[in-house]
């Protein structure tokens, strides 16, 4: 008798393990490294984030003269949020976003 048979028959009458994702959301834990948010008022333009970014995803926005993050290159390591002296860059728990290949 195959050993997995009881498990298989039990699964048949259990609620599936799969989460129906777009309808049921799973909240990521505290400290999840999601999309970056920049608080433009707090930025003091020290450009530390630009120097520390390993993926070179942060550049200076020409209009506002504040850093802007290209999420297409961002690797979500969180170094910029760690290095920012005024905590202007923070990591949110948001993970649903898309970005264009072009900048």
């Amino acid at each position: 008798m195959p050993r997995i048979l009881p498990q298989v028959l039990r699964n048949l009458f259990r609620k599936p393990f799969t989460v129906k994702y777009p309808y049921v959301k799973v909240e990521p834990p505290e400290g999840y490294r999601g999309r970056l948010a920049i608080n433009k008022e707090r930025c003091i333009r020290c450009w530390l984030c630009i120097h520390t970014c390993p993926a070179r995803a942060i550049s200076v926005d020409k209009e506002t003269k504040r850093p802007s993050i290209w999420l297409g290159r961002c690797t979500f390591c969180g170094e910029c949020a760690e290095v920012c002296p005024t905590k202007a860059i923070t990591m949110t728990k948001e993970f649903e976003y898309t970005t264009l290949y072009e900048k």
């Binding site: 599936p16 393990f17 799969t18 129906k20």
Partner: peptide
């Protein structure tokens, strides 16, 4: 049924 046996929705 295969899906449910494998503990997924199918």
């Amino acid at each position: 049924v295969t899906g449910h046996m494998q503990h997924r929705i199918g």
